[in-house]
Amino acid sequence: MARRTVLTLSATLLVIAAIAAYVFLYLTNVPGSATAAQTANGAQLNLATVPAAATNDPHPTWVSYYVTNGQGTGWQHDTTFVVPAHSLVHVTIRQYDSSSGLRNPFISQATGTVGGTFTLDGKTMQAINPDLASHVFAIPQLGVSVPLAGIPDNAKNACGNAPCDPSTTAHTTTTFTFRTGAKGLYRWQCFVPCGAGYVLDFGGPMQTVGYMDGFLKVV
């Protein structure tokens, strides 16, 4: 009897341990978060998009977003951005990838930003040529959507894997400002089909949180 009890109990414990490991190691494995820097006139978010994640990443061939500091260095692979509620968020995105074009050309226009505009390499714009879009930063629930222009296909000093050095590799810089609303968890995504090799180029990094998708945590 005692032997049976011990066996049954240990089998039960083993199963519970396996389940707990499954839940904690796999299911709750979500990318980390990065808090936007506070400045005098709102939060500042510095991002970078790369043609391929770091070589030590589980998916070193996938396109991805990264968080950087103001100088475009100090790369972190986090795609949950923490920003304050009811305030302005200034976003700077250094974009190192070449262009792939949009499925829906409508998304070539910026929406939901302050003034409906963004700056591309210092130039204020409302829309870009949809064929030149490399990525999009969009938060559909806030109506925010900004296209990011790609670097020329024949750029000589194109960046390979993250991290990319902003002083030596080709990139475009897009800045824009949007206003956050109530507290909550919002999602952001890219609308450019940039998951190359997957059907409609919309698999892989496009469908995996932590690459071309993530959350905006408004606190």
Binding site: L27, T28, V30
Partner: peptide, 13 residues
């Protein structure tokens, strides 16, 4: 809202 699992993991479940 999403609170325990990631969006991918939820759909996998």
């Amino acid at each position: 809202t999403t609170h325990v699992f990631g969006a991918n993991q939820y759909l996998t479940i």
